[in-house]
Measured scan of single mutants.
Amino acid sequence: GPGLTDLFKTEKAAVKKMAKAIMADPSKADDVYQKWADKGYTLTQLSDFLKSKTRGKYDRVYNGYMTYR
């Protein structure tokens, strides 16, 4: 089956995709945050998933999740 690194890459891609969806349409934020909360994502995990070469690119999404939880 898929190894943990593959799983991480898949999760990371999914999280980034959802983060971009929030940035494009902030009204989606609560739905996405709820999904992440259901998956039990911690802020540390989210921070790892949303690492970007562009500093602060996903800060709004991260901060939103922090206040959501």
Rank of each mutant, 00 (worst) to 15 (best):
G40Q: 05
K20N: 11
K20F: 06
P26G: 05
D6W: 04
D25N: 10
Y58K: 00
K28Q: 09
K39N: 09
K12H: 05
L43C: 09
T10P: 06
K28L: 14
L4Q: 13
G64Y: 02
K28Y: 07
S47C: 12
A19N: 00
Q45L: 08
Y33E: 00
K16C: 06
M23I: 11
Q45P: 00
M23V: 05
Y33H: 02
A24S: 11
K51N: 09
T10M: 10
K39I: 10
T67R: 15
T42C: 04
R55N: 12
D6H: 08
L50K: 01
Y41K: 01
A13V: 07
K28H: 08
K39Y: 09
L46D: 00
A19E: 00
A13H: 12
A21S: 11
W36D: 00
Y65M: 02
Y65L: 00
K51W: 09
G56N: 08
A14Q: 13
Q45V: 07
A19K: 00
G3A: 13
K51F: 08
G56D: 08
R55G: 10
Y65T: 00
L50Q: 01
M66A: 14
K9C: 13
P26C: 08
Y68F: 12
D6I: 08
G56E: 05
P26L: 06
L46Q: 00
D31E: 14
A29R: 05
D38C: 13
T10N: 10
N63T: 10
A37L: 15
R69W: 10
R69E: 04
Q34R: 14
A37G: 04
A21C: 11
A37Q: 08
L46W: 01
L43N: 05
K57P: 04
S52V: 08
K39E: 07
Y33S: 01
P2T: 11
L43Q: 04
Y68D: 01
V61Y: 02
E11Q: 08
G56L: 04
T44E: 12
K39P: 01
K17C: 12
D30N: 13
M23E: 03
K20Q: 12
V61F: 02
S47H: 13
L50E: 01
K35S: 12
K53N: 11
M66W: 08
T44Q: 14
D59H: 07
K17M: 10
V32I: 14
K16E: 07
K17I: 09
K16L: 13
S52F: 06
P26M: 07
G40Y: 03
D59G: 06
Y68W: 15
A13K: 15
A24P: 01
R60H: 12
T44M: 14
S27K: 10
L7Q: 15
K20W: 08
L7K: 12
N63R: 14
T5V: 12
K57A: 06
D31P: 05
M66S: 08
Y58A: 01
S52T: 10
K16I: 15
Q45N: 08
G56Q: 05
G56H: 09
G56I: 05
N63D: 11
G1S: 12
G40I: 01
T67F: 12
A19V: 04
M66I: 13
A24R: 14
T5Q: 12
K39L: 11
K17D: 05
Y62D: 01
T44K: 12
Q34D: 04
D6E: 10
P26S: 07
K9Q: 09
V32D: 01
R69Y: 09
T67E: 14
D48W: 15
V61P: 02
P2R: 07
V32K: 02
Y68G: 01
M66V: 14
K12V: 06
F49W: 13
A13R: 15
K17W: 08
L7F: 12
W36T: 00
